[in-house]
Design a protein around this nucleic acid. Structure first.
Lengths: 130, 130
DNA sequence: CTGAATCCATCAGGATACTG
DNA sequence: CAGTATCCTGATGGATTCAG
């Protein structure tokens, strides 16, 4: 191992390469809201408002926009029911489910290493301002 | 399994919770440039210009700023040598190395699922504009 | 309830020029 | 070489209001 372009071919598709289309894809998934939304939808299919409740702190506008774009990228599926009042449910697609583990891992990292990160941050700020 | 707060305790540190400090942390790591930089540094310690060359498309300013913040979060270590011309090398800290696998996984995902994503995008755009 | 539309503040990030 | 300092633009994202 392991520069990842060793024997499978396609060395041109490398996120380090600026022109690589996977860059666009990475920009979409390596994102705070994407991560949190995919994590929230990992457990269960949710309707708009439930989702908004779980993903605390997100505005309706941003949730809508992010969901639209995730839908466009084939990561989330949108199910609208012609009822009154309207009901719209969101769930991960098969593709989206393959993304759950990596993003959940990222969320876990953030949760598990909080202390170390905060200590590092305090130490750094001391070094700089102190 | 597995809502992850099952038996280890600390259910309050959940990225879904807006006030959770891990949010800040997640925002820092779930980011395009962070992912690419950590991936680039995963293989080897690099000096500024080498890094800038590998992380194609990043401006000097953004690279500097991102590295500073990663240093502050304890993810990257900066080694400056008092030489002329100056030499500064960056490498992942121990903490940063624990972040490599999750972010590399995200990069791999982007590279491996490019085709599916692009197909989904085309289909979506057809549905909308067509 | 879902979400489109609008307005507005903030910020990410690029270009350029300059310094030790 | 490795930055810092400015300036500037477009994107991000929050708040609010309105509509189906």
């Amino acid at each position: 191992m392991d520069t990842a372009e060793s024997e499978t071919g396609d060395p041109q598709w490398d996120v380090l390469v600026a022109t690589c289309p996977s860059r666009t894809s990475l920009a979409r998934i390596a994102n705070k809201w994407t991560a949190i939304i995919v994590i929230a939808l990992g457990a269960e299919r949710l309707r708009f408002t439930e989702l908004r409740t779980r993903v605390q702190g997100i505005s309706g506008k941003v949730l809508t926009e992010t969901l639209r774009d995730l839908e466009r990228h084939g990561i989330v599926a949108r199910h609208a029911y012609a009822e009154i009042p309207p009901r719209v449910e969101y769930e991960l697609t098969d593709l989206g489910r393959t993304l759950f583990a990596p993003l959940r891992a990222l969320g876990d990292w953030a949760e598990q290493h909080i202390d170390e990160v905060e200590r590092a941050r305090d130490a750094y700020d001391d070094r700089v301002s102190g």
